[in-house]
Computed example of a mutant assay.
Amino acid sequence: MGHKNTIFLALVATLIAKEAFAAQHVVGGSQGWDQSTDFKTWISGQTFKVGDKLVFKYTSLHSVVELGSESAYKNCDISSPIKSLSTGNDVVKLDKPGTRYFTCGTLGHCSQGMKVKITTVKGNALSPALSPSSSPSSSPVSSSSPSLSPSFTTTTSTKSSSTSQCFTSFISIVALSVTIMISLF
């Protein structure tokens, strides 16, 4: 029975650690989801991995609409959205690799550039970037417009996200240590 408990506790600790290491990307950085945000610059400093979360922070003038195709994204066609969000603090989990398309549902905002194309890559959620880096990797992301050509880097979206990841890393290590100590008794 002791070994089953040890395995169970190790599994729980692993799941907690995986969730704790996922990055939270505040879309648009400190400006948030707003027309004045330069999404081209913001996205160029991001790496999106499976398990990460997008956080859309915005006022009641905006909303978040997830589109189902690159064509809908390019044409700002919000007539058949996958999802529409409007709380002003929406969280979208990136649960599988691939490309997802988001825009503002307010008339004219998409055509004025209030949209982002997020490409999520497979990645080890247990090895997050804990400090910003400005050097892009060799895998650029293709873009729907010539002026939007982001490259992946190993930065988190905000300093608070990095601090939060350090704290959750510490908690995960403590939880795993406690699990190991319990299994020894």
Rank of each mutant, 00 (worst) to 15 (best):
K4W: 07
I7F: 08
F8H: 12
L11C: 13
V12K: 09
I16D: 03
E19L: 14
F21R: 03
A23L: 10
Q24C: 08
V26T: 05
V27W: 00
S30F: 09
S30K: 11
G32W: 03
G32M: 07
W33M: 08
D34T: 11
Q35V: 13
S36H: 09
F39V: 02
T41N: 08
T41L: 10
T41D: 09
I43H: 03
F48G: 02
K49L: 08
V50M: 01
D52K: 01
D52Q: 04
L54F: 03
V55Y: 05
F56V: 10
K57T: 14
T59H: 08
T59V: 03
S60A: 15
S63N: 06
S63Y: 00
V65C: 04
G68A: 08
S69V: 11
S71L: 14
S71D: 12
Y73I: 11
Y73M: 14
C76Y: 04
C76V: 08
D77M: 08
S79C: 10
S79E: 06
P81F: 07
I82H: 02
S84L: 07
S84W: 00
L85N: 03
T87E: 10
G88S: 11
D90V: 12
V91L: 08
V92D: 03
K93G: 07
K93S: 13
T99R: 07
T99L: 05
Y101H: 04
C104P: 00
C104A: 06
L107W: 02
L107R: 04
G108H: 09
G108F: 09
G113I: 06
G113F: 03
I118V: 15
I118T: 01
G123D: 09
P128K: 02
A129D: 15
S138T: 14
S143Y: 03
S144I: 04
S144L: 12
S147N: 11
L148Y: 14
S149Y: 06
S149I: 10
S151M: 11
F152C: 10
T155K: 00
T155E: 06
S157D: 13
T158V: 05
T158I: 04
S161D: 15
S162L: 15
S164I: 05
Q165I: 09
C166Q: 15
F167H: 11
T168D: 10
V174E: 01
S177K: 05
S177G: 14
